[in-house]
Design a protein around this nucleic acid. Structure first.
Lengths: 123, 123
DNA sequence: CAGCATCCTGCGTGATACTG
DNA sequence: CAGTATCACGCAGGATGCTG
């Protein structure tokens, strides 16, 4: 067997997903792109929502996240090759396919994480 | 979109979820507990699935994950107070409520991450 | 059996500065 | 505008040994 490549017999899909969307922004970026293509700066701006208290994402980190998402096949980079630079990012079919999953996550989060005062017993 | 009341920092639910299940094992633990209570050792053993190549989770890490999950209100710890020690972990109602989300994640992962399918047309 | 104590390392993330 | 280069740091997470 060629073990040079990723000879993953079968990893837990949950773990694989976790790894794929590891990081603070990947899921949010995917969610942000669900409505259509967005430019680098737009994504960056969109990431600021809900993060007024925290520092904005640095170019280095955003760049890294975008590359990782592209490497995962979730998004696609489109460089217009003009000056000033214009680059758009959009979801691939694969990326679009996981939007419902992100939606489910977001939905659950809104329902159970919106209000921290949830000192609920086990049953 | 509905505007929340005053004094509420608008934390992205997606980011909140991400943070809650941060780590390599939390989601898998939740998934593992979906069928009912499990003991510490059972969880540990269950985590070995698909991780034959990697090193097994250390007690320190597992303990931390379980405590974090308990702190998040997803699981509940039940100590039988006997010797030899017997401790069970089970999903809370909150934990059970997010099982479908994990199921969605797992489902998507099986569909799109099971095999390194390439040739992704950005379209 | 179900943990805790200590040490150590890689990586994710942020800050800052620079470029085509 | 859309990145890259460099530095620094906290923390997740693994190794190992011990305990009630």
């Amino acid at each position: 067997m060629a073990k040079a490549g990723p000879g993953r017999a079968h990893v837990c899909p949950v773990a694989a997903f976790q790894k794929m969307i590891s990081g603070k922004y990947k899921l949010r970026i995917v969610w942000d792109l669900k409505d259509g293509p967005r430019r680098y700066g737009e994504i960056r701006s969109g990431l600021l929502r809900g993060a007024e208290g925290s520092a904005p994402i640095t170019p280095r980190v955003l760049s890294r996240e975008l590359k990782a998402l592209a490497a995962s096949g979730l998004i696609d980079r489109r460089d217009f090759g003009v000056v000033p630079p214009k680059v758009e990012y959009r979801l691939t079919r694969k990326g679009q396919s996981c939007v419902p999953v992100v939606a489910a996550i977001r939905d659950w989060g809104e329902r159970h994480l919106g209000e921290p005062a949830r000192a609920e017993a086990a049953e």
